[in-house]
Simulated scan of single mutants.
Amino acid sequence: MEKKILLVDDQADIRDIMKLYLNNSGFEVLEAADGQEALDILDQEQISLMVLDIMMPRVDGFQLIRKLGKDRSFPIIFLSARTKVEDKILGLNLGGDDYMEKPFDPSELVARVMAVLRRWPQGQTENCQIKNGNLTLDRENRYIYKDGERLDLTVKEYLLLKKFIEKPGKVFTKQEIYEDIWEEPYIYADNTIMVHISKLREKIEVDPKNPKIIKTIRGIGYTMERY
């Protein structure tokens, strides 16, 4: 399966150049013109790496990496015209895995993408694998498997399922889930969590309409059965 690279940059000509070189190197490429478009894509797609500009409308690069949080399942390379040392330090401290300046050499970008992918993730994670029933959470590589087959999950789906697998039997309130996964105040009830839970059930349940793994606790939230 081709590795997917998400290019997040508000300049279409720069995305076109990056896409050409990355496609020629065997990568599948997705594009977003700002951080909000990137978040929308990540709700539908699982990617291997993100190339991220900083100065963009709506949601900029620094805001986006903060929204993604520490449990994102892919590395990030900043590609920006902001060349001050403090910008580089901030980007790396926020969790960036590399930082390139514009203007840039597309061949060097491809080389850096390959290098970051080779070393991701860095280090070992304590309790790398957690199992519950036929589901296995691989914390080191940030994947989840069902019956040994890797699930194709979006970022939010991965974070949700990870949360459940790590604490089977625990009942999570909707507020708790929303504020942890979406990192925003849970002000009013909407269908966001329900939609994501429904999509997860389609991927892990034998009968999604009669779920046995992720159960709804009426008026409270959700829990994963312990097996």
Score class of each variant (00 low, 15 high):
5 I>S: 12
7 L>V: 14
8 V>A: 11
9 D>K: 03
9 D>N: 13
13 D>G: 12
16 D>A: 13
16 D>F: 07
19 K>W: 03
21 Y>E: 04
22 L>R: 05
24 N>K: 15
25 S>E: 14
28 E>F: 09
29 V>S: 03
31 E>Q: 14
35 G>K: 09
40 D>Q: 13
41 I>K: 14
42 L>G: 08
45 E>N: 10
49 L>V: 10
49 L>G: 05
50 M>W: 06
52 L>V: 10
55 M>L: 12
64 L>N: 05
64 L>P: 05
66 R>H: 12
67 K>E: 13
71 D>L: 01
75 P>G: 03
77 I>Q: 00
77 I>K: 11
78 F>P: 04
78 F>C: 05
82 R>V: 02
82 R>P: 03
84 K>H: 07
90 L>R: 11
91 G>M: 01
93 N>L: 07
96 G>F: 06
99 Y>K: 09
99 Y>P: 08
99 Y>F: 15
100 M>L: 15
101 E>G: 12
103 P>Y: 09
105 D>I: 11
107 S>V: 14
110 V>P: 08
112 R>K: 14
116 V>R: 12
117 L>Y: 13
123 G>W: 01
126 E>K: 06
130 I>P: 02
130 I>G: 05
137 L>A: 10
138 D>V: 08
144 I>L: 08
144 I>T: 08
145 Y>N: 00
146 K>Q: 04
146 K>E: 01
147 D>Y: 03
148 G>L: 07
151 L>V: 11
157 E>Y: 01
170 K>N: 07
179 E>D: 05
182 W>T: 00
187 I>W: 06
188 Y>C: 05
188 Y>G: 08
191 N>P: 06
195 V>M: 14
197 I>L: 01
198 S>W: 08
198 S>M: 06
199 K>F: 05
200 L>W: 01
203 K>M: 07
206 V>K: 10
206 V>N: 00
210 N>D: 14
211 P>D: 04
212 K>N: 15
218 R>G: 03
218 R>W: 13
223 T>M: 13
